[in-house]
């Protein structure tokens, strides 16, 4: 199970939970798993969040792999000027 750490933008959808485990082999799996556990969170993460999987940033990359012991951070999508 991947360990997910969510920033505060996600908390309204997680009931305040900031860390939880999700079974996922890919980012797409993770989004589905988040939605199953916290309805609406998967879509929110898909649209608004970037993620760091074991330290490497992934944005809009559904098929990036996630290992069973991965640590996944969710944080706002990165823009720039």
């Amino acid at each position: 199970m991947a360990r997910v750490v969510a920033c505060s933008d996600c908390w309204p959808l997680t009931g305040g939970a900031s860390e939880f485990n999700v079974e996922a082999a890919t980012v797409r799996d993770l989004i589905r798993g988040l939605d199953a556990r916290f309805p609406g969170l998967g879509d929110f993460v898909d649209r608004r969040m970037a993620m760091a999987i074991d330290g490497e940033i992934h944005q809009d990359a559904w098929f990036s792999p996630i290992e069973p012991d991965s640590e996944v951070f969710l944080f706002p999508k990165i823009g720039g000027g």
């Binding site: 750490v5 760091a52 330290g55 490497e56 951070f73 969710l74 944080f75």
Partner: peptide, 10 residues
């Protein structure tokens, strides 16, 4: 080192 927003720097 771990960045304050989550990722580990490489």
């Amino acid at each position: 080192s771990k960045a304050p927003y989550g990722p580990t720097y490489q």
